[in-house]
Nucleic acid binder design. Structure first.
Length: 218
DNA sequence: TAGTAGCT
DNA sequence: TTGC
């Protein structure tokens, strides 16, 4: 067994508390990552990755797609959830049950036993792509947590407080890591630093992040 | 240049 | 203001 694999074994079952209501579950997606990536390929064949535009008129560096009943979209008019993909005019692809069940299990492990996600935002980062500091606040039901799954190239996740100016924790996220935040942490600001150049055996020059949300009130 | 402030 |  090589050292990389030993490191992975050592991460199994480990979790870290970032704040009340926020945890990193290390390595939870590792064993099923290849299968998850196949499912994501299926989604992106129906809803291609695209660079959305911010309300300020700038293109985002992250390539985005969605699955589930609702998808997150951004354009000059603002941020919102939509039942149709504005690029194709069709409904978003269904959320694969394997992914949905995994997200529900991660939420339960982190202390949110009743998670019922209806939206999954798929963010694909090339080297240099980033997400600047923001809150996830477009969902009407803030009692549901956010479940974030990291695949492929590593990234540095910044996890802040409830005010933009609050200090941020720097969290290194690698292939297979899962972050869950909700409850009192639900509206904490967060960001992703520019992804560094690299190569991953399963994703090549990409980081793929899945965020599962409950985007409708019911 | 990494970290921060301020922007409409 | 999920960017510059």
């Amino acid at each position: 067994m090589d050292d990389l694999f030993a490191d992975h074994d050592a991460s199994l079952g480990r979790s870290e508390v970032l704040a009340e209501g926020a945890r990193v579950l290390r390595g939870r997606a590792h064993a099923r990552a290849a299968e998850f990536l196949e499912l994501i390929d299926g989604v992106s064949a129906q809803a291609p990755f695209r660079n959305m535009t911010t309300p300020g008129g700038y293109p985002m560096s992250v390539d985005m797609s969605c699955c589930g009943r609702l998808g997150w979209v951004s354009d000059e008019r603002g941020y919102r959830y939509s039942v149709t993909d504005p690029q194709t005019g069709r409904a978003w692809p269904a959320m694969p049950e394997l992914l949905r069940g995994f997200a529900i299990a991660c939420a339960a492990e982190a202390g949110f036993p009743d998670f019922s996600p209806d939206a999954c935002l798929i963010n694909r980062y090339r080297p240099g792509a980033k997400l600047s500091l923001h809150q996830d606040r477009d969902e009407p039901d803030l009692s549901a947590p956010i479940v974030s799954v990291s695949l492929g190239l590593p990234a540095t996740f910044l996890f802040g407080g409830l005010r933009r100016s609050d200090p941020q924790q720097r969290v290194g996220l690698v292939h297979g890591d899962v972050v869950v935040w909700g409850g009192p942490a639900r509206l904490r600001f967060h960001a992703v630093l520019p992804v560094r150049e690299g190569e991953h055996p399963l994703t090549g020059r990409y980081r793929i992040n899945l965020t599962f949300r409950k985007a409708s009130r019911t």
